[in-house]
């Protein structure tokens, strides 16, 4: 079993109302913030013989399920 973390973010230029709401709240609290983008983190445990295979499976899952490539991008980190 190999742990893999997939982080999904909105593509650059895609409007992020959630990040905007958080940024406005932070401003209200007195923080000076130049931008906030909200995303999603998925920690997967994959049954794979090695890190390369685990990463390939995680990328396939990210492409097919976890992210919508029309508006999102993703990064994969393998914890071997």
């Amino acid at each position: 079993m190999i742990g893999v973390t997939v982080v999904v973010r909105g593509k650059d230029g895609i409007l992020d109302p959630q990040g905007g709401s958080i940024e406005r709240s932070l401003t209200t609290l007195g923080y000076t913030v130049g931008g906030v983008r909200a995303g999603k983190v998925f920690d997967l445990v994959i049954d794979a013989p090695d890190a390369t295979t685990a990463e390939a499976t995680a990328r396939e899952i990210a492409e097919r399920v976890l992210a919508n490539p029309l508006m999102e991008r993703y990064d994969v980190t393998v914890h071997a």
Partner: peptide
Amino acid sequence: PGVLRANHHG
């Protein structure tokens, strides 16, 4: 075609 996302005004 396309995808649905959050309303721009939140």
